[in-house]
Design a protein around this nucleic acid. Structure first.
Lengths: 192, 192
DNA sequence: AAACCAACCGAATGATCGGTCGGGTTTTTT
DNA sequence: AAAAAACCCGACCGATCATTCGGTTGGTTT
């Protein structure tokens, strides 16, 4: 693997687990084996490196989501929303680093001053919410879902799942133990 | 107000809005008007100051919650859960600093190595969850709520609300616009 | 009035940080 | 194989950080 890629992956891991400010370039240099100057050769400064990490998160997360819903068919809209929840919980485990990073303040703080960062974040959430929203819309058409507000319900269900993932991350309680009740709750929200 | 109190309140605000590492003791000194040495006279180090801030958050949040539910009566369990949601959303606005801090990684990171911090956080979440759980239990007894798992449902509803508050904080979307649909969703989860 | 003490001050300190620079090495192009 | 380009190195720099320390003040106790 190229030094640049090693730096990017290690930075993703460290930024996710220790935060932007608690990760020093010296540590990054030590772990990757790249000299200090090498990092600044590939990324013009720390913020640029962070931005590249976020971009990488955006690419991997959205493409994983898009691919999954291109390759899978669902009996109806309700099943599709259920599939989205399952896949989101699944991704949060297999892409732990990336979801951890999205639960930190660092990206949102940078987004306040850096429009590129803001755009990356918006693309991620647009992509995720879009799947939920499409599922609900399809469900309303095929009769498996009965609610009024498509957008708001998508937001509510998404933040419910994301809230669970967050508490799971902090080990306040386990997402796995809630799985069945979580699914039941979502079905109740979506159906009469 | 005493210098010590000024330091504590300013630290709460800065830690909440800028994070632990982005808040320097020098800045704290400048804003409060207290000399550098004075801060370390009252708090033995930065971690100790942060711990005192978390303790203060614990005290104010839990006592606000406890007082509210001691002084209010509800027609039934379902109304009590609805009241808990309303009051939680309300507190997240009026105690913005404190809830912002609880949505940062800083407290949970310290909790990994500092058992006092862990205990404070547990007390906060125990207190909040307890209200939801009691409401659900009462609702099951009086018939306004029909579900199987009291604990899990309390956790699910709580993380739904907390997830909304978090997205509201990041200005990804507004909690106010979701209020009606949020309440409707909760009622659906809790009733047949 | 002497002794005491908590509150307070601010200059000084050593460690660490992000970032620079000049020079060496490898790879690609011509 | 010569030239150009891209990659890589690590010593070094100025800024900033948390923390220390010797000393002052004003009120309370003896």
């Amino acid at each position: 693997m190229s030094k640049k890629n090693a730096i990017l992956l290690t930075a993703t891991h460290l930024f996710a687990h220790k935060g932007l400010n608690n990760t020093s370039m010296a540590e990054l240099s030590k772990i990757t084996g790249a000299a200090g100057g090498t990092i600044f050769h590939h990324f013009k400064n720390k913020e640029d490196l962070f931005l590249n990490v976020i971009n990488n998160v955006k690419e991997t997360v959205t493409s994983a989501f898009k691919t999954y819903f291109l390759e899978h068919r669902f009996d109806n809209g309700l099943k599709m929303v259920e599939g989205a929840i399952m896949y989101y919980l699944n991704l949060a485990e297999t892409m732990e680093d990336r979801f951890l990073l999205l639960h930190r303040h660092d990206p949102y703080k940078l987004a306040e001053t850096n429009s590129t960062c803001r755009q990356y974040l918006e693309e991620i959430y647009d992509c995720l919410l879009d799947v939920f929203e499409r599922g609900i819309k399809i469900g309303k058409d095929d009769g498996s879902i009965q609610i009024i507000s498509t957008r708001n319900t998508a937001l509510i269900i998404f933040s419910m799942i994301d809230g669970i993932v967050r508490f799971n991350t902090y080990k306040l309680y386990s997402a796995g133990a809630l799985y069945d009740d979580l699914m039941a709750s979502c079905r109740k929200i979506l159906t009469r």
